[in-house]
Each structure stands twice: as C-alpha cells, then as structure tokens.
Design a protein around this nucleic acid. Structure first.
Length: 491
RNA sequence: GGUCCGAUGGCCGAGUGGCUAGGCUCAGCUCUGCAAAAGCUGCUACAGCGGUUCGAAUCCGCUUCGGACCUCCA
C-alpha cells in the first residue's frame, strides 16, 4: 500500500500512518452545532476530512467515518454559565428545540450534498447518547476525576493532571493556565477555574433537559465527542479531526475525559486540525459577521461577493490550498479557481475520446505522472501539489488532442483511469453543467447546428457561420473550431 | 498578558539548503476566415536586519507586520 504521512497535531510531527488494525481505519470528526446555517468556513473543515476519507478509501482502507451532530450542550460564549445555543435559538424563533435541530441539520446535509461531500458512516447526535454520557460521567467520578457541585458535575483538571499530562495537544501547561487565571471566589460552583462541566443542572426555564443521578440537566459540550467516538470506534482509534479552533479547550477536554474514564491509554493516534478560512485576513466566523452561507455564495447575494460561484469552483478553490494553512477568501481567487477548474474538467472530459495511435508515447510517462500524484497525496494530503501535477496531465491531454503527442489504447485507459481516480474520486470534483439534461435531443439539435455552420464555413459564408456562433453564444453555448471540425460546450 | 503560527512575484497559493511549483492575470507568437479553445514564450518573488554555510526564500537570532487559541477587561 502507498505510504501515507500525516502531520499529527499531537506530536507536531509528520508521521507515517499506521492503522491500529488494517485494513480498517476509524476516524472521528467533530460535526456542526446545529443552531444556525453553516458558513463557508465550516465547509472548509468538512471538506478537509472529506478528502482524508476519500483518500484513505482510495488507498484501499475500510474506513468507519463518524461525524457527530451537536444538538445540545454547546453554550453561548463558551463559558459554563452561558445559555444553550439551541435552546436560545428555539426561544428566539419560537420553536421546539428539536425543530431547530431538524431545520439546521437538514440545511447542513443540503450543503454537504451540493459540495459533493461523502456521507459519514455514522452520524450520531448528542441527544441520542444521553444515557452513555451519564455513564461516562459516572466512570469519571469513580476514578476520582469528577465531582458533583450543586447538581452539576465538573471535571477536576488539577486532579487529573497529577496523574496524567494535561495540555499536550494544545501545548498548554497547567501551571501557565493556572497562573493566568484569576480565581473568582464565591460565585462559582467549580473548585477550580480550570475545571469544565460534564453535567449542568438546568434551571426552570431551560428547554432541553434530562434526568440524571445529579439533577435534571444536560451534558457538557465536550462530553458527547468522547462518548460517541468511544462507542463507535473504541477506546483507542486512528484519526480524530476537527477545526483548529476546537483544539483548545474542546479536544483537550475530550482527551482528558477519555483518559479520565478509561485509564491511561491515549484515545487517538493521529490528531488532525484543519485551518481557518479567512476574509481579509480574519477568521470567518459568525461572531465576526464576515461569514456567508453556501446559498449566498451560489447566488452572489452578499456584500462580500461580486457575483455567484458554483460549489465545485469553491471546492477547487479550497483544494488549491493546503488544509493546514489558512486560506484567504477573495473574489479574485474564486474567479481564478473557476477558470482553472474549467480547464481541468474540460481536459478530463476529453479523455475518453482521445485519438489513438499504434505507437503511443514512452511507456514510463503515465506511470510517472501517477506516481507524482500519489506522492503528493501521501505527503499529508497535499492537494495543491496534486492539482499542480494534474495540470501536467491537462497539458499532456491537450498535446494529444493537437497531435503533438500520441497515445496507444492501453495508455489511454491507463491515463483515464489514473486521472479520473484523482480528480473525481480523490478530489471529489465533478463535471458541472456539462451533460445535457435533456439528453439526446439537445445533442442532436446541436449537432445539426454545428453541421449547418460547418457547411456555411465551407462556402465561406462567414455571416451565417458567425450568426450561428454568436446566437448560441448569447444562449451560453460556446462553439470551438478545431482542426477536425467544431465542438460545443455549455457554460 | 500567555501559547502557537504565518509573512513568497499583479492575485491566489505550493515548496526544497544549490535543480520549473501550479492556477489565474497581462504581453507577444503559432494555429484559425475572424474569434474562442489549445500550444509556445516572456513578466515584476521569496517582509527587514544580522548570523551559520562553498551556497539560504529554505537553518538560527533579532525587528516589523498579521493571524489563531486562551486569559484579562468591558
């Protein structure tokens, strides 16, 4: 199997990927909190792990991909005395919390679909795992790392850090955290400012609450991921992904909870973090007010957008940057990506009817190209490099079309399977608006027009030929004249 | 204030101690009835200052600017 190297956030090193029990791979990715529409920044993170999932599958691994839906427990302001985001939204919109959850879950799925993201193997929700969460809290308490306080349960970071390292993932040292925290006396139920909630007692106005041994309440935000990853992937699994902004405190707390409940085993072998999408150099975030939804993106209906862009353009744009780097959004960059994608996909479409010759090219050429593709992806999913190599493939295809290079039948099959594998399967790019929706009729009509224009051209009747071309152009159909007649495409 | 990361040509964005990234843009050329497409060629790079080295955009230090997370304040 192709070697794969992954930049591990935990060790801060690029490591050879070795699954716990090949060919199976377990991967957990933190999903959305469904209290509002996802924005483009969220899409980037899910795209990153869509690529990871696709490539692992491409390599032949059998991947169980778990991506949760957070439908309770994520508090506003991320502080422990905040309000539940979904409960708050439900009150504002005068809906049942579960209506909110359903509405934005549907929206999320729609978005994933238009961006051609693969569905996860399991998509569990936090509210579907309340029983397991209560159980895990009990395990943590039994091991001495959790305590009850006024109906709520907290995780004792200080106690935990006496037995296990805390802060490894985020590079935070507990002494620094402590010395930087001014202790607030009284007020707080927590023994220590660093402690985080495992279970919160709900007050009377709280909409989402469940019975528990401690109080009627709801689970803390960090708990669900620990519980669901353990349930579906085991106490130790291969890959855990999420956005960079979840590294601390969310993922750090997750590790502590897992170890706190199950003992000293590290729960995750490879941690991966996707970087942020920025706008004018700043993180795209709801709180910044600089986010826009995929719908606004497609329609262009947003102050930041000069016009609309197709989902595949955006997908390609994002893949031209490495997932671990910040990526800056701009109209210019989107427009450049649009053209680049067009050139790439046009070449891919041409693959199946490349003119063959007996001779063909040097037999090592195509395998070399494919090898470079594999190298790129094997090096921490380097999609920008892969795309660079794919454009060499585009050049090759165009050279074959123009007759500068020849290709034999077996070579064509090799090239087609290879390139389509990377473009369609690994990168998940699909041809947009290409296939005529009304099938044969349109092809036949266009064939007629192209023929008529060809006749006019033969007669040097340029006026007629140009009228046909210009009229079709106005309808969004481009006529392209080649050496052996004309072809057409829809914009 | 703490921790960490980044600064690449008109735009976006890779990358390695010495060997073309790539896409888009722009200019010229080839092809073409013209155009488009395609091909070829060219174009302004590695924030600044030091240091290590035969050689650094790539390693080290400092400076400036920017970002993320946390904290604090409000």
């Amino acid at each position: 199997m192709q070697p794969l190297y992954i930049q591990n956030s935990l060790t801060r090193k690029k490591e050879r990927f070795t699954p716990l029990s090949p060919p199976y791979v377990g991967m957990y990715v933190c999903g959305p909190t469904v209290y509002s529409n996802v924005h483009l920044g969220n899409v980037r993170t899910f795209l990153t792990f869509d690529i990871v999932y696709r490539y692992l599958t491409f390599l032949g691994y059998q991947v169980r991909y778990v991506r949760n839906i957070t439908d309770v427990g994520h508090l506003t302001g991320d502080s422990d005395d905040g309000e539940d985001k979904i409960g708050k939204k439900a009150r504002l919109e005068n809906l049942e919390p579960m209506e909110i959850v359903q509405k934005y879950t549907n929206d999320f799925h729609d978005v994933m679909r238009i961006f051609n993201m693969k569905s996860p193997s399991i998509e569990p929700s936090a509210t579907g795992h309340i029983v397991e969460q209560i159980q895990m809290i009990q395990d943590i308490i039994e091991r001495g790392y959790g305590y009850e306080s006024n109906g709520s349960v907290y995780f004792s970071v200080r106690k935990f850090s006496e037995d296990f390292p805390y802060g490894e993932l985020s590079g935070r040292r507990i002494d620094d955290l402590l010395s930087n925290t001014r202790s607030l006396d009284g007020q707080n139920e927590k023994n220590d400012p660093l402690d985080f909630a495992l279970w919160k007692k709900a007050d009377a106005s709280h909409l989402m609450k469940w019975p528990s041994p401690w109080s009627e309440g709801f689970p803390g935000w960090h708990l669900e991921c620990s519980v669901m990853s353990t349930k579906y992937l085991g106490k130790t699994f291969d890959i855990h992904g999420g956005g960079m902004d979840l590294k601390f405190p969310h993922h750090e707390c997750e590790i502590a909870q897992n170890i706190g409940a199950h003992g000293g085993e590290r729960p995750v072998n490879y941690w991966m973090h996707g970087n942020m999408l920025t706008v004018n150099g700043r993180k795209m975030a709801k709180s910044e007010g600089n986010g826009f939804t995929p719908d606004e993106l497609v329609t262009g209906n947003h102050p930041l957008l000069e016009r609309g862009y197709s989902p595949m353009t955006v997908r390609f744009f994002m893949l031209q940057g490495h997932y671990a780097s910040t990526l800056d959004f701009s109209n210019e960059a989107l427009q450049a990506a649009e053209k680049g994608l067009e050139r790439l996909m046009t070449a891919i479409v041409k693959l199946s009817d490349l003119p063959l010759s007996v001779e063909g090219m040097d037999d090592t050429q195509i395998p070399k190209l494919m090898e470079r593709c594999a190298q790129a992806m094997g090096d921490d999913f380097n999609t920008p490099i892969l795309i660079g190599v794919l454009f060499d493939g585009v050049k090759l295809i165009n050279n074959i079309v123009s007759g500068k290079v020849t290709i034999s039948a077996p070579q064509r099959q090799q090239l087609q399977e290879g390139l389509e594998g990377y473009v369609l399967d690994v990168l998940g790019l699909e041809v947009e608006n290409k296939a005529s929706q009304n099938g044969g009729d349109e092809d036949a009509l266009m064939g007629l027009l192209v023929d008529l224009r060809g006749k006019a051209k033969d007669n040097k009747d340029w006026a007629t030929a140009d009228t046909i071309r210009d009229t079709l152009g106005a309808l969004g159909i481009t006529i392209m004249d080649g050496k052996d007649g004309s072809s057409w495409k829809k914009d």
